[in-house]
């Protein structure tokens, strides 16, 4: 897969993302950036459950090197798969990973 990076401005900071909008460097992410991306995705605001998932995904990424799949999220994040789809209607693993500033989960081989 060819990766083209572009620079976008989130919460006043220049950030490099790939063509699907995933962060090149998860360390530059801030919660304010997630809020801004969520608005662009059509979510009014990120609620407590959204933050539970986003924080969980970042923790998993920094511990394991990849974000969890939806199925693992459903088993371990404390939010059911059905609710995950309500929270992140564009597909929880991908959308939540993007909002959390981590790479697309490597779930599919």
């Amino acid at each position: 897969m060819t990766t083209t990076l572009t620079t976008t401005t989130l919460a006043g900071v220049a950030v490099q993302v790939n063509e699907e909008g995933f962060f090149e460097d998860p360390k530059v992410w801030t919660p304010a950036m997630a809020e801004e991306m969520a608005k662009a995705d059509g979510l009014d605001a990120l609620n407590e459950q959204h933050w539970t998932v986003l924080n969980f995904m970042r923790k998993e990424f920094f511990e394991k090197g990849t974000g969890p799949t939806v199925r693992v999220l459903g088993k371990t994040s404390g939010v059911s798969v059905k609710d995950l789809y309500l929270l992140f209607p564009k597909g929880p693993a991908k959308m939540a990973a993007r909002l959390a500033g981590i790479p697309k989960p490597k779930g599919c081989i």
Partner: peptide, 10 residues
């Protein structure tokens, strides 16, 4: 040289 591999993701 013009390609970047993106891990094993789809």
């Amino acid at each position: 040289s013009t390609r970047t591999t993106q891990g094993a993701s789809a």
